[in-house]
Simulated scan of single mutants.
Amino acid sequence: MTQAAALRAGAEGLAAALPPLLAAAEHLAATIRMGEHGRRRAGAGDEFWQYRPAQPGDEARSIDWRRSGRSDQHFVREKEWQAAQSVTLWLDPSQSMQFSGDGQHGSKSDRGALLALALAVLLIRGGERVGLAGPDLPPRRGDVQLMRLATALVSRTAGPDYGAPELRGMQPHSRAVLFSDFLGDLAPVEAVLTKAADRGVRGALVQVLDPQEEAFPFEGRTIFESMGGGLRHETLRARDLRDRYLERLAERKDRLATLARLTGWHFTPHHTGESAQSALLWLYRALERVR
């Protein structure tokens, strides 16, 4: 196959995947009742938010004299805090996210992409800015941005076995949502959340798992291998590993929940056998609680 033919085939594959993902995200978002997030607050920005009565200490240049001229008191013209209305999404690109145990529920990456895009639909339709972590797709508003997000989510390339969250693109005092199985080293996660907290970034962690990763239904001779082939373990008595595995998984969830609480974030586990609607509703409400 020539380079041109390969490029065309890749483009056609991307175009084929894009409409179903966007349609599914739109449908999922439509199941969540729209509402204000209640995060609008005064600060540095370009858009008018509200007038408020002048207070001692306000500079004379902040007074809106036209509005004040219609009243017996002075008023200050406040603008929105634009950073607080910016939400940055990160979807783990690791090969681990490609896992689908029995093939009935799709991969963890597919579910993460659906939730990320559906959340973007809700936020952008609510007037907020949404982008992806990294330098290429900063938070913006509008349907064009939705299409950019959908294109980026379906065209992402697989990374290493396990991923580490990306901090670039997250504006100070903004919001962020990280989608991952968080099955790799948690040290990079701790580092990113600590840096994010120092910059006033708050948000939510969504641990996306496959039902088999939650239940460990394996018995007898089993070969466990990472999606990238970097890790491999063979056992003749897989059932004997179940209790230890579930204990370590519970410890990992508890560690993530504790980390989120200490840094002002929210955490939830979600597996692909569960309703995507319930996870999206949790996310929508979690972002409303973020201050």
Results as ranks from 00 to 15, higher is better:
213 E>K: 01
235 T>A: 12
162 Y>W: 11
288 E>V: 09
59 E>N: 02
53 P>W: 06
49 W>P: 07
107 S>W: 07
290 V>R: 11
77 R>D: 07
103 G>F: 12
113 A>C: 13
232 R>E: 13
187 A>K: 15
232 R>N: 00
196 A>P: 08
281 L>N: 11
109 S>F: 13
289 R>L: 08
27 H>Y: 10
60 A>K: 10
113 A>L: 06
97 M>R: 06
41 R>E: 03
210 D>P: 02
211 P>S: 07
111 R>V: 02
253 K>W: 15
14 L>W: 14
291 R>F: 09
56 P>V: 08
106 G>L: 13
123 L>F: 00
29 A>N: 10
130 V>R: 05
97 M>E: 05
219 E>G: 12
154 V>N: 00
287 L>D: 05
25 A>W: 12
154 V>I: 08
52 R>S: 08
179 F>D: 03
252 R>E: 02
25 A>F: 14
8 R>I: 15
130 V>H: 05
134 G>F: 04
192 V>R: 10
214 E>N: 09
207 Q>S: 06
261 R>I: 12
57 G>S: 08
15 A>R: 15
77 R>Y: 06
286 A>R: 08
173 H>Q: 12
236 L>V: 13
242 R>A: 04
116 A>H: 10
198 D>G: 12
112 G>K: 09
230 G>L: 03
37 H>M: 13
83 A>H: 01
36 E>Q: 14
65 W>I: 11
64 D>H: 11
62 S>R: 15
218 F>H: 08
72 D>L: 09
203 G>D: 03
240 D>K: 15
98 Q>F: 07
166 E>Q: 13
210 D>R: 01
